[in-house]
Simulated assay, not measured.
Amino acid sequence: MSTWRSATGRRPPATGQVLAYTLLIALSLVVLVPIVWAVLSSFKTQAELAARPPSPLPASFAPTNYTEALRTFDFGVYLRNSVVVTVAATALTLVINTMAAYGLAKYNFRGRTVLFLVTLGTIMIPLQVILISVYEVAADLGLVNSLWGLIIPPAATPTGVFLLRQYMLGLPDELIEAARIDGAGEFRTFVRIIVPLCAPPLAVLAIFSVIWRWNDFLWPLIISQDQDKYTLPVALAQFDGQLVVPFNYILAMSVVSMIPVIVIFLVLQRHITRGIAATGLR
């Protein structure tokens, strides 16, 4: 009995493969439908948002909500603060965590394992437990009500140290020894050899850091006292207390807040699977 083949000569997909793709497509739609609905609703007026039953499409795709929100409610200032804090905090996180992971992975010193376990154990400590202590330290350093107070305290993350250390354990020590024999200093060895080889986990950590810093709400709410220091999540939350909540402006700025995370993910997504898989094998 001959096996059925398509016009291109390929065998038909197996039943399990068809079911797997069907399930993945269904789950993708579940994730994408709320995002598409939010994007379409960001172009609607207050009356359209209050209409029942709701219309899936806006009457006009004019960017009035975006321009009015940026002009009337100083969302431009909040957006600028979020961009500055996210970029600076992510860069600082990558530098600090990479250096800490390199020391824990490639230097032999007494208490290295204990120090790593203590660092790893801090993952289980929620921010709410140490919030007062961190705030007092930030106040003593003069970081309260400043963008530096949003950038510096959350920069060192134990998750990033763990990811990078586990990846660096798989890098051959012979590369470092060869660089030292050739006369390269420790810093040059770190920058020219270790950092380029750690591109996959650095991309993963960059995505995580952007998501953490961009969506962070509790710490910016505590450390920022003036509205000109608010980030976008804190500013959006302030509208809940108004007598008339401008949902059309909130939706528009919520869509704007999603764009950087999506762009970063699309740019670095090819490193995610490789970086996490390689880290998990160490």
Results as ranks from 00 to 15, higher is better:
Pro54Met: 13
Pro54Asp: 08
Ser55Lys: 12
Ser55Met: 11
Ser55Phe: 04
Pro56Cys: 09
Pro56Asp: 07
Leu57Met: 15
Leu57Tyr: 06
Pro58Tyr: 12
Ala59Pro: 01
Ala59Trp: 05
Ser60Val: 02
Phe61Gln: 00
Phe61Trp: 08
Phe61Leu: 06
Ala62Tyr: 00
Ala62Gln: 08
Pro63Ser: 03
Thr64Glu: 08
Thr64Asn: 05
Thr64Val: 06
Asn65Thr: 07
Tyr66Met: 03
Tyr66Asn: 02
Thr67Trp: 06
Thr67Leu: 10
Glu68Cys: 05
Glu68Pro: 02
Ala69Arg: 11
Ala69Asn: 06
Leu70Glu: 01
Thr72Asp: 15
Phe73Cys: 01
Phe73Ser: 14
Asp74Lys: 12
Phe75Leu: 11
Phe75His: 05
Val77Glu: 08
Val77Asp: 02
Tyr78His: 06
Leu79Thr: 10
Leu79Asn: 05
Leu79Cys: 04
Arg80Lys: 10
Arg80Ser: 07
Arg80Glu: 01
Ser82Gln: 06
Ser82Gly: 01
Ser82Asp: 02
Val83Gly: 00
Val83Ile: 08
Val84Pro: 01
Val84Phe: 02
Val84Thr: 00
Val85Ser: 01
Thr86Leu: 04
Thr86Asp: 04
Thr86Gln: 02
Val87Ala: 12
Ala89Ser: 15
Thr90Met: 00
Thr90Val: 02
Thr90His: 01
Ala91Arg: 04
Ala91Asp: 03
Leu92Tyr: 05
Leu92His: 06
Thr93Asp: 10
Thr93Pro: 05
Thr93Ala: 15
Leu94Thr: 05
Val95Met: 12
Ile96Lys: 03
Asn97Leu: 04
Asn97Arg: 07
Thr98Phe: 13
Thr98Pro: 06
Ala100Glu: 08
Ala100Phe: 13
Ala100Gly: 14
Ala100Arg: 10
Ala100Trp: 08
Ala100Ile: 13
Ala101Tyr: 11
Ala101Thr: 14
Gly103Pro: 10
Gly103Trp: 09
Leu104Thr: 12
Leu104Ser: 11
Leu104Gly: 11
Ala105Met: 11
Ala105Cys: 06
Ala105Ile: 09
Ala105His: 13
Lys106Tyr: 12
Lys106Ile: 14
Lys106His: 14
Lys106Met: 11
Lys106Asp: 10
Asn108Ile: 10
Asn108Thr: 14
Asn108Lys: 15
Phe109Met: 13
Arg110Tyr: 12
Gly111Pro: 11
Gly111Asn: 07
Gly111His: 06
Gly111Val: 10
Arg112Met: 08
Val114Tyr: 10
Val114Ala: 15
Val114Ser: 10
